[in-house]
């Protein structure tokens, strides 16, 4: 009652209504994001159902043949492809980037550190298609000369993917190492440890959850990367026999055939997307578990 009397006098009600509308406006914006994800998820799953119905979920997953013209859809070689390229790129990138982060945080002179932080962040913004182009013009010929074949292979794609995820892992591991409290270092040096012992027994174990998160984020980028891999991996859908043989990944399968696919084939590409999405979700859950 009191409120109403004030409101008549001062336009208080108007103010309240305005604030209410603003709050609802912000609420709507927040809901837009949720609605988008649900819509996207629903749409991709619905579009993929005909393909799963056609081949059966299990057969689709472990089928060895992908021949759209004969309506045979099996994506096992591509799952192998995605896992192999990602794993090899991590084997190359993780030791390099973690030791780079340790050097920059623990050993480098302060000036060098200030100078390199923005450089690395900028490098993280270089478009992936540029890395793909670089691989096409420089890495693929090198691989061709060493191993023979076309030069478009697992190894080519992995090397370029490794370069691509370096800045991400370096910059995030650097943050993780920086957040180790200084007392830890002082206590370790106070006990007479060398710098290497301090890094090995104190800093790395303390920063490990952060470093794992960094690696997983890099891994997510590598699994989801499309064009760089499409340009470099050769895109043949078979189980590879060596590191120099070509391969097709889940992402490049979608990108390659989306332009002309129709019917069940079109739906099978959405099914590939669903599998890709599941792989990424598993990675996300693992990373949350690891960092705890």
């Amino acid at each position: 009652m009191n409120l109403r009397r004030y409101s008549k006098k001062k336009g208080f009600l108007k103010l309240i209504r305005k604030e209410y509308l603003i709050e609802k406006g912000f609420f709507t914006l927040a809901m837009v994001m949720i609605a988008t994800v649900l819509l996207m998820f629903a749409f991709v799953v619905i579009e993929s159902l005909p393909a799963f119905g056609h081949s059966g979920f299990f057969n689709f997953l472990v089928g060895l043949r992908w021949s759209p013209d004969m309506n045979i859809f099996g994506i096992f070689p591509m799952i192998v492809g995605s896992i192999l390229t990602t794993a090899i790129s991590l084997i190359i990138a993780v030791p390099m980037s973690v030791s780079c982060a340790i050097y920059l945080e623990e050993m480098a002179p302060a000036k060098l550190k200030d100078y390199f932080k923005p450089v690395i962040q900028t490098l993280a913004g270089i478009p992936s298609v540029i890395y793909g182009f670089f691989g096409l013009t420089l890495i693929a010929p090198i691989i061709r000369n060493i191993f023979g074949g076309s030069g478009f292979s697992i190894l080519t794609a992995s090397v370029v993917l490794a370069l691509m995820i370096l800045p991400t892992i370096i910059s995030l591991s650097q943050d993780a190492i920086k957040s180790v409290p200084n007392q830890f270092r002082e206590a370790s040096f106070g006990l007479g440890s060398t710098q290497w012992q301090c890094i090995k027994y104190i800093i790395l174990p303390t920063a490990l959850p952060g470093i794992i998160t960094a690696v997983i984020l890099g891994m997510g980028r590598a699994v989801g990367e499309t064009l760089a891999v499409l340009m470099l991996a050769g895109n043949v859908s078979v189980i590879p026999s060596s590191l120099a043989s070509p391969i097709r990944t889940l992402t490049s399968n979608i990108a390659l055939e989306m332009g002309y696919a129709t019917g069940i084939h079109y739906s099978a590409l959405f099914a590939t997307g669903v599998i890709l999405f599941m792989v990424i979700m598993v990675l996300m859950i693992v990373s949350t578990l690891c960092s705890k």
Partner: peptide, 19 residues
Amino acid sequence: ISQVLSSVPSIVFGLFGLA
């Protein structure tokens, strides 16, 4: 949701956009 959205591979966004 924002975490999920940021981990979706770009080609899946393309699929969604097209369909």
